[in-house]
Design a protein around this nucleic acid. Structure first.
Lengths: 190, 190
DNA sequence: TAACTTACTTCAAATTTTGAAGTAAAATTG
DNA sequence: CAATTTTACTTCAAAATTTGAAGTAAGTTA
């Protein structure tokens, strides 16, 4: 068991019967929430990945609820994420692809639906007619605004004080690191 | 624009043309990676959600690759996550459900495939015959072990020093917080 | 100008997720 | 203790999402 731990994860401080905590880190991340961690917990690769999966699921389901509340029937959470990814800039499909690490055909598919729904404008670029320029329509912007508005409450709950903010930012940057490492790994191996 | 920011996100320190950074926080999270953030960046709800979605996608794709390398044809990344969620304990379907915030029928579906594939043992509990007890078979454990083994390399890259570890842990706990907030919101509203 | 590359799109299939409707075993209640 | 309700799952059918192979058309390069 110890060997397994040493291999897969990395320990912070000397461990006192800390193995089980490693198996269920959910338990270790108790109320103290806001403060920096001050104890031995092992966060492995997979624990993080599982956490990310769960959080992602929760958020998607929240988005779905929000969309339903808004009475939007023709946009699912995945498409909403595309709209949010576009934001208030005009970009090409390729850029959008990078923004979400989507697969090309996937974005094409969503864009079609969103264009049909009137949420997005797609125009061929002047300089390069292969490249499509994408941007939100009034309707698309409105939907995003509504979603952002609904999301405001969460921001207020999640970012109460400076400590929260710091942690959110660290989380963001750490995830970005995962994104890079896992992304490069996918391309070039390890 | 400022109003929008103040409403949706929260700012760290006084902002100097920091608005754009809020729109593209990817850019702000530069190389410094290991150190704590020391600058004004706004991390909103949605930015984090988008990041989580991207990272999740990357990880799934990595898992798929790994499974292919291992020659495992009958287990997709989603099922692999279920196996990893089970780990080395025996639990009920309900517990497993909680572990991943799955929907019941979803897990049932995966379990069926995994039982058929010989990765999981499902036995009705003695004390409560409605409840199924789940655990990995030899084969299932072997697959998890192989995956964990392959994952070791990432842990070593991601957790080089104490700083990395701290950040990983903060990320984990922050995500856990998101999990709770978003989860409660789904149940009870805001 | 022929061959190649890029930037997308289409389509068909696989995978994953959802929701409604079971079933059978507890637990509760009158 | 029989009747009802609740719990713990499963099944099924449909929807949503994702994937991959095969286009197409516009640039680029040789």
């Amino acid at each position: 068991m110890i060997q397994k731990l040493l291999h897969e994860g990395v320990e912070v401080e000397t461990s006192i019967d800390g193995y089980d905590a490693a198996d269920f880190p959910e338990i270790s991340a108790e109320k103290q929430g806001h403060r920096h961690p001050v104890h031995r917990v092992v966060v492995t690769h997979f624990e993080l990945a599982r956490m990310i999966e769960r959080v992602n699921r929760r958020f998607a389901s929240l988005l779905r609820t929000e969309l339903t509340k808004l009475g939007v029937e023709d946009v699912g959470p995945a498409q909403a994420m595309v709209l949010l990814a576009i934001g208030d800039v005009e970009l090409s499909v390729g850029e959008l692809l990078d923004r979400g690490h989507y697969i090309g055909s996937n974005i094409s598919y969503y864009l079609k639906q969103l264009v049909d729904g009137g949420y997005i404008d797609r125009v061929a670029s002047q300089r390069d007619k292969r490249s499509a320029r994408i941007r939100l329509t009034e309707k698309g912007e409105q939907l995003c605004a509504n979603l952002r508005n609904a999301g405001g409450a969460y921001n207020r709950v999640l970012a109460r004080d400076d400590d929260d903010l710091r942690n959110l930012e660290i989380a963001f940057q750490t995830l970005h690191r995962l994104e890079l490492v896992w992304g490069n790994a996918a391309r070039y191996g390890i």
